[in-house]
Design a protein around this nucleic acid. Structure first.
Lengths: 216, 216
DNA sequence: TAGATTGTTAATCGATTAACAATC
DNA sequence: TAGATTGTTAATCGATTAACAATC
């Protein structure tokens, strides 16, 4: 089984490999990939081993094979439909984001509890009332939901999603959700990400690199 | 020095502790925090040790002290001004997001290269032309920048930011940036996050839990 | 052939977890 | 006191890195 750290590096490899392919290249070495992504060649080879693709000594890996293998390992080969809950600024931004297509993800419906938003067009869909969530999920066999509501209502929304039969939740609300163990949860928490940025800054500044602090 | 995994858990602790404080509570045990966040009490105690706050046997930790200590450890005690580059859907959503205030982060200016957007109000600021970036960063002693431009222009924007004297970059563009080692970089990559979600789904489905796959 | 590259096996490193004494 | 809780030291676990043989 492929480790989570490896999974996290797959999208970066994929972007780079697609670019190489576009440039007409056919082979790439672990050394080159490592150089571009700031990784060690050893780690790249380990990651590539996870895809099941075998490299050729002196030549490297076939780009096309790696692309297919990574996409397949991530389960991105079949397009997945998802619903999104919360038609605020972030919800709208994500619903309209066209980049999801390259991960095989499509937001097919947006739900909100604010009746003044019902029917408003967003991306390729419109805003539906929360009341229709369960029926929609059942009718369209939806497994994945994206939460972009405020923190206060995130748990209620999550409960409603689980009740509707959703199997995986991608949560953007700054709230740690409690879910049954058979429902997959992934957070994208801005606070967490900014905390790491803040900590890295502190380390850099604290490590005596005083010339970096003053700009004059 | 506090480890990155611990830093990543700090915001979750902080949210919970602030909620307890609001509820009028004064003390909390590692056991309780662990229960709410799905962690082990041992791990919570280890994390709390990093803050420097000492707990009291049988009682637990003083909530107020933990809040202060975590905020201070993250460097969130002094408000930090940041600029944001890219007034697209995501850029607008982040610029208007009020939750940043609780991390001590404020977007004080938005820049874009599209002249049709210049002067447009976003949140508490307006859109400035990229030409004015360097001067603005110098005049306001800005250290942090947020990138929300498309992948194609992300590296150029990053280069311009480094040239302008920016010390830390929070990158939302789906692109792995190359930066000098003295500039801090933090990614919030939707592809990476979705890759982990996809992998978790595969694991759940593949582990023979076939009843989870079919909904009928 | 020589040299660059792959793939595997072992060593290192760091975080999590366990065990247990100390405390109120 | 008894029992819940903390804090520390050791053990475990997993990922990264190193070493090196195999390959074209």
């Amino acid at each position: 089984m492929i480790s989570i750290p490896t999974i996290k590096r797959f999208p970066s490899y994929l972007r780079l490999l697609r670019q190489y392919k576009e440039d007409g290249q056919q082979w790439v070495s672990a050394t080159k990939l490592a150089g571009e992504l700031g990784l060690t060649p050893i780690q790249v080879r380990k990651d590539m081993a996870g895809t099941g693709v075998e490299g050729r000594p002196k030549v490297g890996f076939e780009i096309e094979s790696l692309i297919s293998a990574i996409i397949q390992n991530l389960g991105w080969d079949n397009a997945t439909d998802a619903v999104l809950i919360g038609a605020g600024h972030l919800g709208v931004a994500l619903s309209r984001y066209e980049g999801f297509a390259s991960y095989g993800l499509q937001i097919v419906a947006v739900f909100d509890k604010d009746s003044s938003k019902f029917g408003r067009p967003i991306g390729k869909t419109v805003v539906y009332p929360m009341d229709e969530l369960k029926q929609y999920v059942a009718d369209h066999a939806i497994n994945i939901a994206v939460i972009t509501v405020p923190a206060e209502s995130a748990q209620d929304v999550a409960d409603a999603l689980v009740d509707a039969g959703i199997k995986a939740i991608w949560n953007f609300a700054p709230k740690d959700l409690r879910l049954p163990p058979n429902v997959v949860l992934q957070r994208t928490d801005l606070a967490t990400s900014f905390a790491v940025l803040s900590a890295k800054c502190r380390r850099l500044f604290d490590c005596g690199c005083s010339e970096l602090v003053s700009t004059h």
